[in-house]
Design a protein around this nucleic acid. Structure first.
Length: 170
DNA sequence: GTTCTTACA
DNA sequence: TGTAAGGA
């Protein structure tokens, strides 16, 4: 059995040395919620090996010019991805078991045009592309785009046709 | 060890 | 804006 990367063992001075950072910087990251070590009984921080790796990741992002707010957001999203991946595994397993227990051949699932899941009867096809476009209310947008292409060539140098006001006026 | 405040680039 | 230092 190896060392648990999540075991909270390093005090802040050791963690700072391992991460090659100033202890005050680690406190700042903790306060901002970027890397939150666990706490020993009392108030002192205890960093895990995993925390050290996160600190190095933060260091890398910071050197690349990402602001601390941006880094915080990235960390949150990364946690979200991890959680969702785990959820996918759980649900896939449950689905497999459910299907093995009670095979239901009366329903078929397919991908809709927008990537959604649609339920069909056996032998039935998903809606054709044109129909789906109408259902999504994209017809007027497509008309606008064709009118944009129809504009006189000389005008293109004068203004940007992607300009919001201009597109709204069509 | 902690938090708060301040200085510097 | 981010890091480091000093004091309580």
């Amino acid at each position: 059995m190896g060392i648990d990367v999540n075991a909270p063992i390093f005090v802040i001075s050791v963690a700072a040395e391992l991460a090659e950072m100033h202890p005050q910087t680690l406190r700042q990251y903790d306060r901002l919620g970027i890397v939150r070590p666990s706490r020993a009984p009392g108030r002192s921080r205890r960093y895990s090996q995993r925390d050290i790796e996160l600190l190095r990741e933060v260091q890398k992002l910071s050197q690349e010019g990402v602001s601390l707010e941006g880094i915080k957001r990235i960390m949150e999203l990364q946690n979200q991805v991890t959680g969702l991946r785990q959820r996918v595994v759980e649900l896939s397993t449950q689905l497999d078991e459910a299907q093995r227990r009670a095979p239901d051949r009366s329903r078929v699932f397919a991908a809709g045009l927008a990537g959604d899941v649609v339920t069909l009867s056996r032998g039935q096809r998903p809606p054709a592309a044109a129909t789906a476009v109408q259902q999504l209310g994209l017809v007027s947008l497509m008309e606008r785009r064709s009118r944009l292409r129809a504009l006189p060539a000389g005008k293109s140098a004068e203004r940007n046709y992607a300009d919001d006001d201009y597109v709204q006026s069509l």
